[in-house]
């Protein structure tokens, strides 16, 4: 079990909190909450140790395309980078629904 966080500058608001994903092997849960601070903060708790750089690469790519003031909390059970990216896209879509 490993925990870490990453912060990226951000400017846009999200509409609402959202929660997606499942507690299950190869998957993850994501909770996104609006933030007052001008940043996207990722807080990760993962069952698979030793992948901090892989996470950073996924978030670098995500924040290059998405700019949201939010705290994104991730509870990971060994999801692949492909699953993480899809789940991030999914949670952003729900967080921006009216």
């Amino acid at each position: 079990m490993e925990s870490f966080s990453f912060k990226y500058p951000a400017t846009k608001n999200i509409s609402q909190r959202a929660h997606i994903g499942v507690v299950g092997s190869g998957d993850l849960e994501i909770l996104i909450s609006p933030s007052e601070i001008d940043q996207t903060e990722f807080v990760i708790r993962t069952a698979s140790d030793g992948f901090k750089q892989t996470w950073k690469a996924v978030f670098d790519r995500f924040t290059a395309l998405n700019d949201f003031k939010a705290v994104i909390t991730i509870n990971d059970f060994g999801a692949t980078p492909g699953v993480v990216s899809l789940r991030l896209a999914q949670v952003i879509e729900i967080a921006n629904q009216n």
Binding site: G21, G26, D27, T80, G82, V83, L86, R87, A89, Q90
Partner: peptide, 11 residues
């Protein structure tokens, strides 16, 4: 939902 397929995950 997330679907795991032979060619990777999709929604």
């Amino acid at each position: 939902v997330l679907v795991k397929t032979k060619s990777g995950p999709l929604l």
